[in-house]
């Protein structure tokens, strides 16, 4: 992405592209990743609720997965998963 010149800046530097921070992929910060064992998953959604990145998504069949473009590997989901369906694995 090329940097804007002063003439190209929006007036007052207003950012009118909501959610555009998602261009930046924080997944590269990660040293470990969460993996789900769907046999243990009760689809409660705790992992979705407690994700600071908002990157845990529910799939069509009701299970969950992390968007690894953004997952920073904090491990909250694995730590809070009551049925212990999530494990953190080294990258």
């Amino acid at each position: 992405m090329s940097l804007k010149t002063w003439k190209e800046l929006p007036i007052g530097c207003v950012v009118s592209d909501p959610g555009s921070a998602s261009e930046y992929h924080t997944g590269s910060w990660r040293s470990q990743r969460p993996t789900w064992d769907n046999a243990k998953c009760i689809k409660c959604g705790i992992c979705y609720i407690y994700c600071p990145e908002g990157c845990v998504q529910q799939t069509e069949d009701g299970f969950f997965q992390a968007d690894l473009d953004y997952c920073k590997g904090c491990g909250i989901c694995a730590h809070e998963c009551w049925p212990r369906a999530i494990k953190m694995e080294e990258e």
Binding site: P18, G19, S20, A21, S22, E23, Y24, H25, T26, W29, R30, K43, C44, G45, I46, Y48, I49, Y50, C51, P52, E53, G54, C55, Q58, D67, D69, Y70, K72, G73, C74, G75, I76, W82
Partner: peptide
């Protein structure tokens, strides 16, 4: 509480997008 399946009770829209630069595991951004 979560017997009620939390995701169904909560607004699914993410009004704060991923890609923010908070530290890993930040409780505040959550």
């Amino acid at each position: 509480n979560f017997d009620l399946f939390a995701p169904r009770l909560i607004n699914r829209k993410e009004l704060l997008s991923s890609g923010h630069r908070a530290c890993s595991g930040c409780g505040e951004v959550l």
